[in-house]
Design a protein around this nucleic acid. Structure first.
Lengths: 131, 131
DNA sequence: GGTTGACCTTCCCCCTGCTGCAAGCGCTGG
DNA sequence: CCAGCGCTTGCAGCAGGGGGAAGGTCAACC
């Protein structure tokens, strides 16, 4: 299967698939004409990575997950630990975003939002209400 | 004020401050010896950017905010609109992260997390439960 | 046989927002 | 006069690709 087909089946852009070969994440064979040749196994790996990426795993985590995927003797606890780690990471990000949101919306609330120049948001950024 | 002092006062690394000059965000003068020379006004602008960045505004948004900051005739509605936009963006990110979290935790729940190889997380990534 | 067009290749630059490294200056104290 | 700090420049690199040029290939059509 050429890269175009692989892209279709894996729902990944061809560019991304080439990049994954570059960083040795999914390394296909080659046809005599030099075209990349993707086996069914390669396609599975690509889809696997696509799913893991869409769940927020980094490339390096995907690499690890792929090796667990192919290790028939892996302990499920290893995989679960990664998932739980990731959940913790996501929770931290959500908390941070919520606190950002809180700050911004309390600023926006104080701002009249009219055509006059007085703006508590700018004043805050300028440090007029320091500490 | 040299860059070291500017870094201290603005709570930004010197490298970052040089970068901001490079992209014409905050452009100091120069002393006869070639050192960057930061006026009080420059320091204010640096702190302004530091605060806006920490609120999640991109560099380009900071550039816009800075120009609003210096425009004494700005309408506060312009600034408020940016803040509200940013809040919407944050909300979208939070929603996305929550849905990610949901997917990951329902996977993790199904996984025994023992030393056996059966792992619903890996199975899901492998596409065994497609569609 | 020629030509078109889709597909493939490699290569390098671009993005955001910095960070690190290296070589080379200026300045100050002993 | 030299050590050691602070400053200068420039280049390379991080994640995770995207865009596009310049060229090879393959199948189909006239």
């Amino acid at each position: 299967m050429n890269i175009g087909q692989a892209a279709e089946h894996s729902k990944l852009p061809a560019k991304t698939i080439r990049y994954y070969e570059d960083i040795q994440l999914v390394t296909p064979g080659r046809s005599p004409n030099g075209y990349r040749k993707y086996s069914d196994k390669d396609i599975h790996r690509l889809r696997f990575v696509q799913r893991a990426r869409s769940l927020g795993f980094t490339i390096e985590e995907c690499r690890l997950l792929l090796s667990l995927y192919q290790d028939k003797d892996r302990a499920s606890s290893d995989v679960k630990a990664m998932a739980l780690d990731k959940i913790g990471e996501i929770d931290r990000k959500i908390t941070e975003l919520q606190s950002l949101r809180q700050m911004l919306s309390s600023l926006a609330e104080k701002c009249h939002g009219d055509d006059k120049p007085d703006c508590p948001i700018i004043d805050d950024l300028a440090g007029l209400n320091d500490q």
